[in-house]
Structures are given as structure tokens and as C-alpha cells.
Amino acid sequence: MMDTVKENSQPKILVFSTEKISDPAIDLAGLLKMHYPPTVFTISLPCSSAIKSRWILHAFDKGFDGVFIAADGTDCTYGESCIELTSQVVSRTQDMMREKGLDPARLKMAAICSVCAEPFVNHMINFTEALSKSD
């Protein structure tokens, strides 16, 4: 599936990960030499509920095709409210995306625990595939 996409047209994905929970999973994917598209870039934050809509919109503005939030989910060390607040960030941003004529499906979120290497890789492969189809 990846081979059919020309290299320079591969969709670019920005991942917001978290220092304690999802970043270790993304590292683990590399450790286990699991491959995902190299057009995936990561910015790590303390907690996924700290992501600002303006950053996401900025990423689309600058040429990213998709933004993926590798959320803490229930493992968040800062408390249970993380899940709800992160979802609010997503829905608020998706509203803004609609207003700007951006497909809200270009913003995705999933909880990635610190050993969820395989789920992360699958998310990246599937998201890349979905984004290249929609283009």
C-alpha cells in the first residue's frame, strides 16, 4: 500500500505525543524496528490536554496533511480530567477546521499507552493511507 504512493506526495503527519506515556510507545516502535512512514513527525508535551488549537491549525497552514494526538487516555499522570479536556480540544479544533474548509478527519486522536508500539504503528499506517486517499 505504501509503495503505491510516490515518495514526495506522501502525506505529512504531525504527532503530538506526551513525555511520560505515548512517547515511550513511539520510541518502543523504533526499538522493535517496526516501520511506519518517515513523514511522521513528533512533538512531545507534558500532557495531551495541553495542545492548543492554534498549533494544530498552524500545522495545517504550514503544509501538514494530518495531525494525530497520541493521547494519555486513562494512564495520564495528571488526572482523569485529561481525557475529557483532550477530547474538548479535538472537537473545538474540528469546528474551527470546518469553518476554514478543512476536513475534520484530518485531525485524529487515540489513546496510546507507554508500550502501545504496535497500535501506534498501525494508526500511522492507516492514517497515512486514509489521508492519501482523501487527497
Partner: peptide
């Protein structure tokens, strides 16, 4: 709580 053991141990 079904939180992941590694997420608790490794830190």
C-alpha cells in the same frame, strides 16, 4: 484500574 503496568513501573 486497568492501567498499563509498564506505564506505572517504568517511570
Amino acid at each position: 484500574t486497568l492501567d498499563c503496568a509498564a506505564c506505572i513501573t517504568t517511570p
